[in-house]
Each structure stands twice: as C-alpha cells, then as structure tokens.
C-alpha cells in the first residue's frame, strides 16, 4: 500500500482493522504522522457528532409511547392496519405534492396528533416560552397554564407549533401555523373531527378536537392570550 492509498483509506475508514492497512502505518514516518493526525481528527469528529443526550428522558418517552400502543393482539394488528392506511394517505398526499391547508392539516394530524396527545397525558416536559418564542410570541398566564404540552412541528412555511391545551371538555389539539392567513372560522373536517381556523398574530391557529361553546371560548382565549413578545415586554 503506497502513501496515497494509505491516506485515502485513512479518510474513508480510519478505524479499519485490515492487516495490510495496519501494517502500512509502520511503513515510514509520513505514514505514522498521517495516522496520528487522523486519530486527532477522529476524536474531534466523534466529540462533535456524539453530543450529550438526556437519555433518561428520551427513553421514558419511547417506552411510554410503546406501552400506550401495547394491548390485545387483535388491537395491535388493527393498529397496524390503521398505520398502513395512514402512511398510504401521507404517501398519496406527498406524491401529489399538495400544499393546500386542508390536506396539510389532515396529514399532520394523522401523523402525530394522537402521539402528541399521549405525550400531554403522560405529562411530558415541554417549554412553552421557548417554543412560542421561536415565533416571537408569548402566552399570557391564562393560556400558558393550560398548555399541557407543546412542540415544534413541520408547517406549510417551515416550522410551526403543535400544542395540547387543557379545557373543561378535555385535551384539545392546537396548531400554530406562522405565515398562514386563513379565513377566521373556516372549518376543515379531519377524520370525523373539526379543525377550526383562528386569526392569530403572524399566522393562524387551528383548533382540533372540540366543538361548540368550548371551541369558541378557546378561540377567544388564543386570540387574547397569544400575543407578540414585544407587546408583552
């Protein structure tokens, strides 16, 4: 193995245990120096790529979600069928590249609406201020104390917020879609549920999973309590 081949191997597979590669390291001072340099670089690369993770929190979420999914065998099979149907719907959705609001809402809610509700039920930690701050918004206490869970999510124009709000009727899903300005009160049916659009600063809110008076009250609460940071400061 000449030096050029050795350097190529170092760049592609520095941890190779190939005897010929290992032997080449002893072939001369330039081989040894290149190998030492590669070791330094690999330590830096690994230190960057393998960043610290809150493994306990991650594992707790994974195990909780799977426990919720566990159940009688027939139920698991039925769930599997539902998942396949959902994936098919999303694939069809993506294959046609639709960017209409109703199709996006349906695909998004089918994708993780239930899972996010489960996270809220399980009391998973989330940071209301940090997530809303991404959109230069803040929640007044009347709303903030009722947000059971919130996360960033894919939206029509980059990222949005996906939250679960506690109401007297139970947990309700709310999306915040920045840059989307839909008609106030527009109703989009999603699998037998209503998604209702609300005008909000910088975008639209979408309330999913409730009806009637509670829906109207939540719309008012969102409009009153979700405000630009500059107004709150």
């Amino acid at each position: 193995m000449n030096f050029s081949e050795f350097r190529n191997r170092l760049g592609a597979d520095p941890g190779s245990q190939d005897p010929e590669f290992l032997a080449a390291r002893q072939a001369g001072p330039e081989f040894e120096a290149a190998a030492r340099g590669a070791e330094v670089f690999e330590r830096k690369l690994e230190g960057m790529a393998r960043f610290p993770v809150d493994a306990d929190a991650l594992l707790a979420e994974v195990l909780h979600t799977s426990r919720r999914a566990a159940g009688p065998r027939w139920l698991a099979m039925a769930a599997g069928v539902a998942v396949v149907a959902g994936i098919t719907a999303i694939l069809l959705f993506q294959a046609r590249l639709p960017d209409t609001l109703p199709e996006y809402l349906a695909a998004h809610y089918r994708h993780d609406g239930q899972m996010v509700l489960e996270r809220a039920t399980a009391g998973a930690a989330s940071d209301v201020r940090a997530v809303l701050g991404q959109f230069e918004l803040t929640a007044a206490p009347a709303l903030a104390e009722r947000i059971a869970y919130i996360k960033l999510c894919p939206s029509l124009h980059g990222e949005g917020a996906h939250m679960v709000v506690q109401t007297t009727e139970g947990l309700v899903t709310v999306f915040f879609l920045p840059g989307v300005h839909a008609r106030q009160g527009l109703v989009v049916p999603i699998d037998g549920q209503r998604a209702v659009l609300v005008d909000l600063p910088g975008g639209s809110g979408v309330i999913i999973g409730t009806s009637g008076q509670q829906e109207a009250q939540l719309a008012v609460l969102l409009q009153e309590a979700l405000v630009p940071v500059s107004v709150d400061a």
Partner: peptide, 24 residues
C-alpha cells in the same frame, strides 16, 4: 438530529421508529 437537523423532528422520528419497532 444529523439526518434532519431539527430537534423536534428528530424526537418524532425516534418515537415513530420505536413505535413501529414495537408493533413489528
């Protein structure tokens, strides 16, 4: 995280991965 470059999406991906793994 390195695949999608986004913390929220990465957590969702891992959740979905293990949910599917459990079912299969």
């Amino acid at each position: 995280v390195w695949l999608c470059g986004n913390e929220a999406l990465a957590r969702d991906l891992v959740q979905e991965t293990f949910l599917r793994a459990w079912r299969a």
